[in-house]
Nucleic acid binder design. Structure first.
Lengths: 127, 127, 127, 127
DNA sequence: GTGGTCTAGACCACT
DNA sequence: GTGGTCTAGACCACA
């Protein structure tokens, strides 16, 4: 499904969250698809089940999945109408900060612009 | 100089790093300017000196400041020639991740594009 | 594992760094081997855990080890492809400085040359 | 005479020591030549006189210079006969350590050998 | 005065 | 259990 990178400074559960998020966002996992069980995924990644548990809880909290006791865990369709404006602002602030750092590093204004355009063009696969 | 937000999930030293970075990037602190001494800043923020020192170390590693024992800590002009490509890639990856999150939240593609353009247009104020 | 030399002018954490580096370079600690935990090593050397942690951080930065919170610290295989040229230059500069000192001490040119050759011939033992 | 590099992590007095050592070893300053006075050099480098004082003391201790009260400080001819064997061993150990690090970084054995030869060939100017 | 190292011991997040 | 952060306070070297 995906690989963990222990050398990475990110904690394991965070990597699991990010990877699953990625799969859901890109449509590899579709809404209502069943996710692997905590135990299966923990075996597959040779990680402690509690770690997977924690990742699933985090994803549930963020609205990416939902859990039905006894049945399993399923991907969720993103809420298309009620956009969380506060969250959008938070993310915007983060991107603003990244752009600043980019320019500080010596990246020219036009290069920075190009980088952003590139990133938007990558969206092809997942609309 | 700036305020800490103890409710914030970010660690104290990380907040110090981010705030000082901001001040340097925006030109409030200019190259060769002396930063407050470890002890002074620690008093000002009512934080332990070790915590400030840790932040200063991090900034030094990232190339924002330099330290002369016995003299103090000073802001550094960013290396304008040799851009740190690895760092640029890291930041690009972070922005990519933020954009994804944005789209998942339900922000339309064109709205996301507009947000990025807005952010680029803001650059006026800090050169 | 190794001993500290409190009389030494080198700081404790620096000694820990050098000793562990030595063990990794000579293959006593192999890639992916788990290093003693911060607490264990601190007890073993009767040193404060923070001191050990600082040493581990330094080694991590230098690419000798990597850390996974909750799991431990592990030795790392050196990057065999992309040699860190800047680091090589730094080391070369250090050796240059040592050679000068040697010659100043009165060691003849040919003797200095012989010393260097000897050192290269020693490589047998640690591959 | 020479320049200080504040960005460098070395302490100021250490840089003064190293630079003067360099000048003496390479013969720019000859035996019995008078070194600049503490006050002059401190002005020239815009450094605290105490710092220069300390550097001179260190050089005197290492046998590079000698001071005659009221007259000034003078370079010293290195002791050509009584080589400090212990010091030679210490330096040898340092070089050994640097070579190991070089090889660990991925530098091939033959490249390391070439580096050492290069360093020896550089001796041209100062015998 | 400056930064750098170290200790003793607390508390937290992750596995 | 693991590492990561933080405090309070001491001591040192450098300028």
């Amino acid at each position: 499904m995906f690989q963990l990178d222990l050398k990475n400074r990110k904690s394991i559960y965070e990597q699991v969250v990010d990877n699953l998020k990625e799969l859901i966002i890109t449509g590899v996992i579709n809404p209502e698809d069943k996710l692997p069980s905590v135990r299966d995924l923990s075996k597959q990644l040779t990680v402690n089940p509690n770690t997977i548990q924690k990742a699933y809880r985090s994803l549930e909290f963020q609205g990416y999945i939902y859990t039905v006791t006894g049945l399993g865990t399923f991907a969720l369709r993103p809420a298309e109408n009620k956009i969380d404006e506060a969250m959008v602002l938070t993310i915007k602030e983060k991107i603003r900060s990244e752009i600043k750092e980019l320019l500080y590093l010596g990246v020219s204004f036009s290069d920075a612009q190009k980088i952003l355009e590139d990133l938007m063009l990558e969206r092809g696969g997942w609309k």
